[in-house]
Amino acid sequence: PESADLRALAKHLYESYLKYFPLTKAKARAILSGKTSGSAPFVIHDMKSLTEGEQFINCRQMPVMEQRSEFGHVQESASEVELRFFHRWQYRSAEAVREVTEFAKSIPGFVSLDLNDQVTLLKYGVIEVLIIMTASLMNKDGMLISYGQIFMTREFLKSLRKPFCEMMEPKFEFAIKFNMLELDDSDMALFLAVIILSGDRPGLLNVKPIEDLQETVLQTLELQLKMNHPDSLQLFAKVLQKMTDLRQLVNDHVHLIQLLKKTEVDMCLHPLLQEIMKDLY
């Protein structure tokens, strides 16, 4: 009976994951490997293709592509285009925070936690969750953005001016290693819940109920991984080890954003992201 409860929890979290996250790993992998029936994503690989494609960043549906050439004629400095691209990226990130919040609320017991603790769990967990989810959209050559409509190459991201060029490379390095674990969407749903329910976040008021919730999800994840990946030895331990790398990644990310705020006079951070990053680490 206990195992049946854990299976029910796994099913529930997988359904929430599908409900709140628009681009699943399964769909992203299909697009990346060219196995979808729809058109291939628009590729951004240089400033010209960024100028052409940036209009559609954050679009769920790509407009008719005949219009593209018109945008290529606009003469702008690379620096302006980079900054505007960063703004669009931020707005998608804020939307993703909303999706993660809805997912967190669907974890049984989460909304019964102290409201201050819910805020703390999200503040500390949300960037880690987003980095994990971004890994699903990445391969060694680039990443999908805009709900899978655009593929942005890793080389192009590396070619941006400092510190923009330093933002994604550590995430690619992490993603390549993380993707080798070959988790599927149902595993990911549980892993994300485990991350959110971390009882060691600074400033938590009532740790015990959080740890109790996390323990149940951990048991579910362990069972799920054994059933879903019977031949993958020590997968549960390997997955949990990634949580240490994630904290370092978030720490570095927040410091880069703080650096950006100092060096880019025109940059204004989205208010939701400001809230999350202020006094984070």
């Binding site: 707005y91 804020a94 939307e95 925070v97 909303r98 919040t101 609320k105 909304v111 409201l115 201050n116 819910q118 805020v119 703390t120 999200l122 503040k123 400033g203 989205h270 208010p271 939701l272 809230e275 999350i276 202020k278």
Partner: peptide, 21 residues
């Protein structure tokens, strides 16, 4: 903490109404 995280707090409290991000 809630005061310093008004948007996050609003996202947590509003379950159905769309939040203006």
């Amino acid at each position: 903490l809630k005061e310093k995280h008004k948007i996050l707090h609003r996202l947590l409290q509003n379950s159905t109404s769309p939040v203006d991000l």
